[in-house]
Design a protein around this nucleic acid. Structure first.
Length: 887
DNA sequence: TCAGTCACG
DNA sequence: ACGTACGTGACTGAG
């Protein structure tokens, strides 16, 4: 007979993991009666995957019975200080129990015992009955149960990524056997269970000691053999703690359970009850799955079909009198880049009917064109900017697009940044529409499917845009994001569409000339490098380069990467003096970068109008900034002279015209001064001081600005930047090449001088912990589920993010407002000047010669008055006959 | 497709 | 004791 399989699940810890894995979706997972359901959903998903993978005969989900257990009798403060389970999670636990019951799975809890002990007991029972046991948990404590018959699966990220602990794997990870792991824990303590262990002993030392002496007892028998040291003293002093730790860490494998192995046998699920439960929880995907399998059809074909009509010259007049109505519109293009992608069709819902067409020329028929250009006919779409650009290509100046499902969903939760309607819909439990990837395929093979399938896909999209609108608008309201959505993001979409269509004129011939020069230099550098290396190799290959530098030439490898030697600038700079080849390689790298990323690539993007039309991604970044693609015009070189030359190719579109650039001075620091309310920093900005010099004066305790040396200013500048990023002494020391101790002093001085900034940073973290997200001045959110992480690094990252996001994000809010006001002003004054680029804190304009004076006046005015802060906003202007000269 | 590197704010 | 600055996109080699 085949070996029977037993699956044991730690119900509390897995629910906990599921809850935090889907924490950012917390508000998206709610049943109609207001119950949060994210943990239930995650738990159910994980359970399905496990049942499929493990195919168990018996399953038991163990829960903790309460806070107090037999361990508290040994140690009062066991698990003390632990944060209370959030109510959003605890309300879900009974439902998980109910779900298990309906699925035919036994769940169990035992007074005075933890779920761990129940699992330990049943693992032992399973072993005794020669079963193959799998344990699933979010907690490493249970790994002590691993044996040749017991595998412990611990969740890594989320709930579906599991790490399997066998005795061999334990040895690899901890250097000790599963039973020795108990002793290891006893020595190091457990902060989450709140018992101390021996002071100064971490995982490394604990593992070494236990490997040497076998156990806590073994260690203390031989304690005299240890050479005199602080560590030995502490081991002796904290012996009680170690002995207690061992008792606490040991899982009870013979708990007085009142159920038997037979009770854990997997039963048939109660379909009717499950259906009811899913309906109550609004689990539409699970319901759809059930329906699909009930029909005997598979999941794929469970898509709904929509009633639609093909639009043609016969019925097009049905779209004439729809004033005062709301319409939903979707324009289909094949490919991401909507400046170039072929327009394949469209779909419109009006008069309660859905019309679809493959004939985009119909859009230019007066009926439809007028409808789209009438600002009084409100249109719901997915991606306003894309729709505006697509229609503009057909000569249609669309107006009245006033609901954007993509923008709304991005503001509600920007963690998932998909641009695909289907994928976004899935986030809100709406599975009636597929993703474009599924329908069109990807890469070269992407194609519009057969007409009926295509129309149905479009109809599904239009239906979903309309269906989810109330829910998304409600969420925006809950988040106090109405203003951000209506008055910032939607108008920004219009402005960006215009900027993208404007394009930036680029001279291919200027780039061609640069190419001549750079190619020559590159060939020279190449041969010098080959000569000094003694052989020809691919300089662009880090692997080959590493071989030459660190093996053949024997230079010291300073840093390693996952795959081999690091050859980054940082490393090469340090090796510069050791061999002449190194600086040649640095030169080569720099020039090659310019050549391949800009000089060679940019001309490919110049369209027939002589301009480059980038696309801004308005719904991608975590902070609310824009990003630019195809090509990226936000990273055109500016730091080196050779790089800057590239900007000479960016020119005005009119003869003798100007490129005009205006950038905010220190926006992020000004935002910080504003949100923190720090009086010293506000004073510095109000007085118009050079902020970095001012900081230098303060942190170096100088009396007058004259005493500030350039080095001091440079250091102070780095500290100011560091603050915005959520500073660490290590990061600062690495950045400016000082000792960590010195960096620490800088930071301490800084906080002394700007005490309210320190308060701000603490408050930012505290609030993120309480609310689960960080927020900008305009209420843009960034969810930070990792702020609760156990792992120090993961948590620290989230904490720095909590500090940085409101600053970077508020600056992004501000320039968006400036852009909207700017475009309005250009329109009002009927100027021919065009806004052509945004680079985070900078706006760039294509200005006809005779408008320069006006622009010089209005641009800084508009930018500086975008928002009223407690400190002045300053913007500096530059102009010239190309972008290089606008400096 | 991933990792490494480097361009920008 | 941890190993670290925040946010992006494009190109290249290598699997």
């Amino acid at each position: 007979m085949a070996q029977k399989k037993l699956l044991l699940i730690d119900g509390n810890s897995v629910s906990f993991r599921a809850f935090y894995a889907l924490f950012r979706q917390l508000e998206n997972f709610k049943s109609p009666d207001g119950l949060h359901t994210n943990a239930i959903f995650g738990f159910k998903n994980m359970l399905d995957a496990l049942l499929k993978d493990v195919e168990p005969d018996n399953v038991l989900v163990a829960f903790d019975a309460g806070k107090v257990t037999f361990r508290n009798e040994m140690y009062d403060d066991y698990k003390g200080g632990r944060q209370k389970t959030p109510s959003e999670l605890s309300e879900q636990l009974p439902v998980i129990r109910e779900l298990l019951k309906d699925m035919g799975i036994e769940s169990y809890e035992l007074k005075n015992y933890e779920a761990d002990d129940i699992i330990g007991t049943f693992a032992t029972l399973g072993e005794e009955n020669n079963m193959q046991v799998t344990i699933v948990t979010g907690d490493r404590d249970l790994t002590q149960l691993a044996s040749d018959k017991v595998t412990v699966m611990v969740t890594k990220r989320g709930v579906n990524d599991l790490e399997a602990y066998t005795p061999e794997h334990m040895k690899e990870v901890n250097g000790v056997t599963p039973t020795e792991f108990i002793d290891m824990k006893a020595l190091m303590g457990d902060s989450s269970d709140n018992y101390p262990g021996v002071e100064g002993i971490g995982p490394k030392t604990a593992s070494n000691l236990i490997q040497k002496y076998g156990s806590v007892e073994g260690l203390y028998e031989h304690i005299d053999e240890l050479k005199a040291s602080k560590r030995k003293e502490r081991l002796i002093r904290d012996k009680d703690k170690a002995v207690l730790g061992k008792k606490l860490a040991t899982i009870d494998r013979h708990a007085p359970v009142t159920i038997t192995l037979a009770d854990t046998k997997l039963r048939e699920p109660d379909q009717a009850a499950l259906r009811q439960l899913y309906e109550r929880l609004n689990f539409r995907s699970f319901l759809a799955k059930m329906n699909a399998s009930a029909d005997g059809t598979n999941e794929e074909s469970a898509t709904e079909t929509y009633t639609f009509e093909e639009l043609n010259s016969e019925n097009i007049d049905e779209l004439t009198n729809i004033k005062g109505q709301e319409v939903t519109f979707y324009l289909a293009m094949l490919g991401e880049n909507y400046h170039l992608a072929p327009i394949e069709g469209f779909c419109i819902k009006a008069n309660g009917k859905i019309y679809a067409s493959e004939n985009s020329e119909l859009l230019t028929e007066p009926v439809l064109k007028d409808l789209l250009e009438d600002k009084n006919i409100k249109k719901n779409v997915f991606d306003i900017k894309r729709t505006l650009v697509g229609l503009d290509r057909l000569g249609i100046k669309a107006q009245g697009l006033d609901y954007d499902m993509l923008l709304a969903s991005y503001l509600v939760n920007n963690e998932n940044n998909s641009n695909d309607l289907g994928e976004v819909a899935h986030l809100y439990g709406e599975y009636s529409v597929k993703s474009d990837l599924e329908v069109y395929g990807k890469g070269k093979k992407a194609a519009v499917p057969e007409k009926d399938i295509f129309y149905n896909h479009l109809a599904a999209k239009v239906a979903v845009i309309e269906k989810l609108k109330p829910e998304l608008l409600e969420k925006l309201k809950d988040h106090e994001q109405d203003d951000l959505y209506d008055n910032i993001e939607i108008p920004t979409a219009y402005v960006l569409a215009k900027m993208e269509r404007n394009g930036f004129k680029v001279n291919a011939s200027t780039l061609e000339e640069l190419d001549q020069e750079i190619s020559k230099k590159l060939t020279e550098l190449e041969s010098t490098i080959y000569q000094q290396a003694g052989e020809e190799f691919n300089i662009n290959s880090t692997k080959q380069l590493g071989h030459i530098l660190f093996e053949k030439l024997g230079l010291p490898p300073i840093k390693k990467t996952k795959t081999g030697y690091s050859t980054s600038v940082e490393v090469l700079e340090a090796l510069k003096t050791k061999s002449p080849i190194v600086s040649k390689i640095l030169d080569y790298r720099q020039l090659n970068k310019l050549e391949s990323t800009y000089i060679k690539a940019l001309p490919e993007w110049i369209m027939s109008d002589g301009k480059i039309h980038t696309r801004y991604l308005q719904t991608l970044t975590a902070t609310g900034r824009l990003s630019s693609v195809d090509p990226n015009l936000q990273n055109i070189p500016t730091k080196t002279e050779e790089g800057k030359q590239i900007r000479k190719a960016f020119v005005p579109s009119t003869p003798d015209g100007y490129i005009f650039s205006c950038d905010y001075s220190q926006v992020e620091l000004r935002v910080l001064a504003h949100v923190s309310g720090d009086e010293n920093m506000q004073e510095a900005f109000k007085s118009g001081y050079d902020i970095h010099a001012h900081t230098a004066m303060r942190i170096f305790h100088l009396d007058s600005p004259d005493e500030v040396t350039p080095l001091m200013r440079r250091h102070a500048k780095a500290v100011n930047f560091g603050i915005v990023y959520g500073i660490s002494d290590y990061g600062l020391s690495k950045n400016i090449g000082i000792s960590r101790k010195q960096a620490k002093e800088f930071i301490e001085n800084y906080f002394e001088q700007y005490p309210q900034i320190k308060d701000y940073m603490d408050k930012a973290i505290k609030e993120a912990r309480e609310k689960g997200y960080a927020e900008t001045i305009m209420h843009r959110r960034r969810y930070l589920p990792d702020i609760h992480a156990k792992n120090f690094n993961v948590r620290s990252f989230a904490e720095r993010t909590a500090i940085n996001s409101p600053i970077q994000g508020s600056a992004a809010d501000i320039i968006k407002i400036a852009m909207i006001n700017m475009q309005k002003k250009l329109d009002e004054l009927k100027l021919k000047t065009k806004m052509v680029l945004q680079v985070h804190d900078e706006l760039i304009f294509d200005v006809p010669q005779d408008e320069l004076e006006t622009i010089k006046k209005i641009v800084p005015e508009v930018m500086q008055s975008a928002i009223k802060l407690d400190v002045p906003l300053i913007a500096d202007s530059n102009w010239g006959h190309n972008w290089y000269d606008a400096k």
